[in-house]
Design a protein around this nucleic acid. Structure first.
Lengths: 343, 343
DNA sequence: CTGTTAGCGCCTTCAG
DNA sequence: CTGAAGGCGCTAACAG
């Protein structure tokens, strides 16, 4: 009786004329089943196309062989992590379940706690949290965080060197002669965003260039939310000759805003991003940016998680990967007038 | 007693001094709970950080508000689909669960049937199958397929115009004067691959250019599997002056093989890909390719699925989206000698 | 060797 | 308004 369409272990048992327990044994390869019975059940399973329900099985046995990747939404950054995770997990015998719980905006604080609660203890044996907003060690399953919003805390963490990366980006602009440099930040409540701004300010201070508060804006890390502040920055009477955006999506928004206002990149405006998502190379001109090894961050996190799930302690609780500047086409020397004026 | 670490509805009930039924009612906003009780339970839920288990809930109620995206692995194509899906699902009230069941190689035929069986009826209310190898309408939940390997069948399908796209790509190379054009195919068992090869042959035939069988290879749609055939193609004594690869990953492998052999692209070799994944713009030089609207394919599929889940029939069962040529830097006119020789 | 009996965590009657 | 009982699909003892 497959009313719902889905064939259950009961259907198999009934069709094969045995009990569900026997079917379960056959499925799990337990000993204690007659050869003939085994074969008959196998046949029924094949003919009915039965596959055990992950849900029911996990509810009972508390083990699923599934690793959860919890993200707020699927955007360029999290999907790059996913690619790395996917490669790392191949061959380990684990399967992957990427869950997007938070609302689209990413404004839904605490999504990772809810998602983890909904899935852990039953559906997944361990989890990788991608840019979680809050990290508490409250749950039973092993967890590794990638680029947590609050910085490394109690749980194992993988991130990249945001501070050094931001310094590099800013120094690149300074070396090109820029002095009026705008900064388009992420969100003040996020650690990565804070560090990138700190790196910006550090490099400026080191060079002895004052930061004009009017040139520092908040872009929210998303293309749509960065559109307005990017326009504002470029419509300033005394507009910047260069902008360092705290991620690529906002850098892309900046390039679009420039085009919108008739400014040529990089002639009238230099732009540097952060992340080096694949989309960064597709802009016109291609974006100069600070690359984080996103796929590697994903695979490293899986490595740590697998150790944790095996009950082994991980050697390094906080792993910080290096960033590097990728020079493409959005940076040019500052117009001589601009540089001279400040001097 | 939170032995496992996970807090269940029982913990909440015990702490609040009520029965689980009462807690359940509070959670689901049912009527029939005293104001004071309601508040107390809410407080306990908040303080304990309780969140109902997706697993247990779905097992019972057979409704989860979760849409499943089933993929073989997370690579550039499927993650682009994911991005589109993620945007389309925002605001619908559904949550997303992307499940990667098949082994890494993509050689695991039937992964989508198994994955679907494991998740449907319990964990997810509907599913989008990304490049499924076999499509049967065997299960209870609504399903939409994106780019099925066997071509449109019984279930609603979204794909792009592979044939026309391949013709366009080939004609582009022919227009540049190329005559010795190599074709790096996907896998013979896949419909998309078959259609792209057909498009290639059609365009060649139309131009009256014979196809040299030695120049047609199978690359398996993956970078690693395409490496060997790409090398073979370029090491031929009478090597092609251009290669049309059936997807971007293989085109990238071809560019790498060319660099490996000291061939300059596009001077010594023109290359065209298919898909236009973000990575295509990041090659040196950037890849000329046939773009499929991958994100749109994802969002369109979600649109159809949501209709289906609401019990409404979808107007168009098979939706085919257009492709277009994106000219970047990997194509140049054929060397005059080469063209003349054939004429 | 095989069937029966308990639950896993949750939700839904149905009495109290 | 609240508590006890049953069942979702499956597995793990324990009987037969």
């Amino acid at each position: 009786m497959s009313r719902t369409g889905r064939v259950t272990i009961n259907d198999v048992a009934r069709t094969a004329g045995v009990s569900v327990a026997t079917v379960s044994k056959v499925i799990n390869g337990r000993y204690g089943v007659a050869q003939a019975t085994n074969e008959r059940v196998q046949e029924v399973i094949a003919s009915l196309g039965y596959e055990s329900s992950l849900v029911a099985r996990s509810l009972r046995s508390h083990r699923t062989n599934v690793i959860g990747i919890l993200v707020a939404e699927f955007e360029p950054f999290s999907t790059e992590i996913l690619k790395g995770v996917s490669q790392a997990v191949a061959g380990t015998g684990y399967e992957l379940l990427a869950y997007s719980g938070g609302g689209a905006g990413g404004t839904d604080v605490g999504w990772e706690r809810r998602s983890l609660s909904r899935l852990s203890g039953t559906l997944i044996d361990g989890a990788v949290l991608v840019t979680p907003t809050v990290v508490e060690v409250h749950d039973g399953v092993p967890v590794v965080a990638i680029d947590p919003h609050a910085g490394p805390s109690g749980i194992p963490t993988v991130d990249s060197d945001n501070l050094a990366g931001a310094v590099t980006a800013t120094e690149h602009l300074l070396a090109l002669g820029h002095r009026r440099i705008g900064f388009l930040g992420g969100r003040p409540d996020l650690e990565s965003s804070r560090l990138r701004e700190e790196g910006f300010r550090t490099a400026m201070a080191r060079a002895g260039v004052p930061v004009d508060p009017a040139l520092v804006r908040v872009g929210g890390y998303r293309r749509e939310t960065a559109d307005r502040p990017a326009h504002e920055l470029l419509e300033l009477a005394d507009r910047p000759t260069a902008v360092f955006a705290a991620n690529d999506l906002m850098a892309i928004a900046t390039i679009e805003a420039a085009a919108d206002l008739g400014l040529a990149v990089p002639r009238d405006l230099s732009v540097v991003g952060f992340d080096d998502v694949p989309e960064a190379a597709a802009t016109t001109p291609p974006l100069t940016t600070v690359a984080q090894p996103m796929q590697q961050m994903g695979s490293v996190a899986i490595g740590m998680l697998v150790e944790l799930m095996a009950g082994r302690p991980v050697p390094a609780a906080h792993l910080r990967l290096p960033t590097r500047l990728v020079e493409r086409g959005t940076c040019a020397p500052a117009p001589v007038g601009a540089t001279a004026a400040v001097r």
